[in-house]
Amino acid sequence: MADAAPCGCKGIRSCLICETERSLNAPPKEEPFQQTVCTYCIQCCTAYEETTSKHPDHHGNSFSFKGISVIPDFVSPEEEEHLVSHIYKSPFVVSQSGRQKQDYGPKVNFKKKKLRADKFTGLPIYSKFLYDRMQGLQELKDFLPVELCNLEYSSDRGAAIDPHFDDFWLWGERLVTLNLLSDSVLSFTNDSLRNVEVQVPLPRRSLIVVSKDARNVWKHSIHRHHISGKRLAITLRELTPEFLEGGDREVEGKNLLEVALTFQGSSVAES
């Protein structure tokens, strides 16, 4: 699969569409290895080396897993319906591994550490109430989002995302995601602990904040088998200190935030 597929997959990535249409070129599967799957309890804020028990009746070994905060029912069913209806008024573009996306942010070349903001018109108007609500949380009272990405996952396409780190040059310490339309699971792996995976449940309409070790030490992913039906993820990102007051690119960051927080933006696909 060296060339791009109609679904948006390229390189070693694939989805059900290209695996069906181009089965001869499907990427090789990794050899399985013995893995300990740990479940993170969002009430205990602890990872347990088992997958069956429910809070508070945990058993087995446990360990601290720093940098995860899950707020259930961050939006109501009515607010979810409002958000989804507004999101689907704008076009999606195909992404890799069966996903579709909408971007509200500057155009970035992460390898060359360059960005262009000439087509950036701000975050979408429907996200303003989410921003206001986040300001009321102690852990997010100083969170200033400069980019919003909507990702649609569909089981029909076999959508997933491979283990990865979000960029460390432009995107700051906290990654904030609102999980809509269905329950899901965010999985974490560590290259130095290849036999361990921590699975964090994402209830429908919950907000997750990823920071500290979960952001900087552990890669995160979404497995194909954790997508049932359709999932819509709204992810917001903040800037690194380099783009904030006192940083080398403070002026650039200030300009980006001024545009972002007008909440008058259209997605890149529309511009």
Rank of each mutant, 00 (worst) to 15 (best):
Y48E: 01
P241F: 02
C41L: 05
S76F: 05
E79F: 07
W169K: 03
S182H: 11
I227G: 02
L202F: 01
L170F: 08
S184P: 03
E238C: 10
D248E: 14
A26K: 15
E258M: 10
V198T: 00
P56F: 04
N61W: 01
K54N: 13
T39A: 10
P91M: 06
D167F: 10
S64M: 08
Y88D: 10
K29G: 03
V75I: 12
S271M: 09
K112E: 15
V268A: 10
D162C: 07
H86P: 01
W171H: 08
I17D: 03
R204V: 06
K128C: 09
G67C: 06
Q34D: 09
V108I: 15
G105H: 09
S154C: 11
T52N: 15
E147R: 14
L180F: 07
C9D: 01
V93I: 14
W218Q: 01
G11L: 04
L175R: 06
K54L: 11
E81R: 10
L175S: 14
G158C: 05
I208C: 09
D191W: 06
Q138Y: 07
D57N: 14
V268Y: 12
T262G: 12
E242Q: 10
L186Q: 03
P77S: 03
L130G: 01
S211L: 08
Q43E: 14
C15R: 00
C15G: 08
E270M: 07
V200R: 00
D248T: 13
Y88E: 13
E197I: 14
G246M: 04
R174N: 13
N195E: 12
I71M: 04
S182C: 11
C38W: 03
S127H: 06
P106I: 02
E21P: 04
P124Q: 10
S23F: 11
K230F: 02
W169R: 05
T235I: 04
E250K: 08
N150F: 15
I161V: 15
G60P: 06
V176Q: 05
W218I: 04
L178Y: 01
C44G: 03
V146G: 12
E245H: 13
C45H: 15
A159I: 08
F168A: 12
I161P: 00
S228H: 15
K101Q: 13
S85E: 14
L256I: 15
T240F: 05
R249L: 13
P91A: 11
N61Y: 07
Y40M: 04
H223R: 15
P163W: 01
K112A: 15
S64D: 09
K141F: 02
Q35W: 03
V84P: 01
P241Q: 04
E21G: 12
V75L: 04
E21M: 11
S266V: 15
R157K: 14
N109G: 06
R224F: 04
E79M: 11
D191M: 06
G247S: 04
S85M: 08
R174G: 02
V108A: 03
L256R: 00
A26G: 05
G60W: 05
G98D: 04
Q138A: 14
V146F: 10
F263Q: 12
S14H: 10
K107Y: 11
R205F: 02
D73K: 08
E30D: 13
H220G: 05
S127R: 02
K111R: 14
N190P: 01
L178R: 03
R231L: 11
L144E: 12
S271L: 09
L123F: 11
W169Q: 04
V185I: 12
T46A: 02
A260W: 00
K89N: 14
L137T: 09
P163L: 04
L239E: 03
E152S: 11
